[in-house]
Design a protein around this nucleic acid. Structure first.
Lengths: 204, 204
DNA sequence: ACTATAGGGTGTACGCCGTACACTTGTCAA
DNA sequence: TTGACAAGTGTACGGCGTACACCCTATAGT
């Protein structure tokens, strides 16, 4: 049932998702769902934990940097597959997959020699970047290099007086040419952050 | 009317916000609102642009780094005052304040000598971090040092088997002691990113 | 073999939501 | 005086989450 709920939300988005559509999908009357979950909120909790379960757990036998890098890419992949989850990953009652994930990430940093304060800093900046990037990617519609250009052009056409915004104009004209690649963009920022953490850590 | 809508959303949150409550607040019947906006979506567009309007515009006469730092702090402040806007800043039809803001940020970077590609990178990583941090701050309930500790403790109590998650346990026990300060945390990550950009820029 | 129990599905109904559509009212220009 | 137009009103429809009472069926205990 949770699987069906996730699949439905993937298809129709968060706004189209609900108890009644889900019931229909399962060939059942809406109230039947309430035999398995207390309410819609609890259902969403379970769905978010499924998404957490799709994120690769950090493994202990690599260096912290490549481990963190892998889990960042994996997290982005999960959020890309389930865009409806982006705003809910940290806001809901945490499930077991959520706890395992956070525990493993924190464990990776601490075992790598990060001080407690430093580990908190590192965790915070990485997660903020990952979630924020996923949010932008979803909202701006920059899915692929091609669609990024299309989205940029579409935005440009809705602007009344483009000449008032010369720098924006440059973006929407040059971005399609240069072939913006969201995956590469994500890794660029991620590496900038990991570089920064690497440098600061050596100073301990 | 837009002002009233923003104020109401600030009070009751996005879930409690709607045409009917807003109409009641204004002492008017719900359908009266539709003389001023086409629908709820357009209303939200306007509200988001008000939030954009509260973000200080970068000024041209400072160096790029302190300018970007100021606008990041200002953006966080606006998002903190209007948490309901966090997931909507880049997803809706852009209004004039939005365009002015993006144009000014891009202009600051380009005038400071960033190449086009580099400016895109810099913009992307900064905005992802700002929006992501705001999202986490809202969802985790880390408003002040004190409430951050409370939130951590509360989370800890809802976990079934805390001993399975030793590193998580360390977080929820030590965070309240160390006096986690979200504002300081935000600036820590922001400076890490700005440092990275500064270093990369010199290499051009 | 008979019955009690419980887990899952059903049907109805209530109060929310956004909003389409037809109507009234107040104001000001021609 | 009249006509147009901006602003507010009332009713109604279809969708939502879900409370509550009911039913069916499979199993367990006697």
């Amino acid at each position: 049932m949770l699987q069906a709920a996730v699949a439905l939300a993937d298809e129709v988005g968060l706004s189209g998702f609900g108890m009644r559509p889900l019931a229909q999908e399962l060939g059942v009357v809406p109230m039947a769902l309430y035999k398995h979950v207390a309410n819609k909120d609890e259902l969403l909790d379970g769905m978010v934990d499924i998404v957490f379960g799709e994120i690769e757990l950090p493994e202990a036998d690599h260096d912290w940097r490549s481990t963190m890098r892998k889990r960042a890419l994996s997290t982005r992949a999960a959020l890309k597959a389930h865009p409806w989850a982006i705003g809910m990953m940290e806001s809901r009652h945490p499930g077991p997959a959520n706890l395992r994930n956070h525990n493993a990430v924190m464990g990776c940093l601490r075992e790598a020699g990060f001080s407690f304060e430093m580990a908190i800093h590192a965790y915070s900046v990485q997660d903020a970047y990952i979630y924020g990037f996923a949010l932008q990617e979803r909202d701006l519609g920059f899915e692929t290099p091609r669609s990024a250009g299309d989205a940029a052009r579409r935005r440009a056409q809705t602007v009344d007086a483009p000449d008032d915004y010369p720098y924006l104009l440059e973006v929407v004209t040059r971005l399609p040419e240069t072939g913006y690649d969201p995956a590469a963009e994500f890794e660029w920022g991620l590496d900038l952050i990991l570089d920064g953490l690497h440098r600061l850590r050596r100073r301990d």
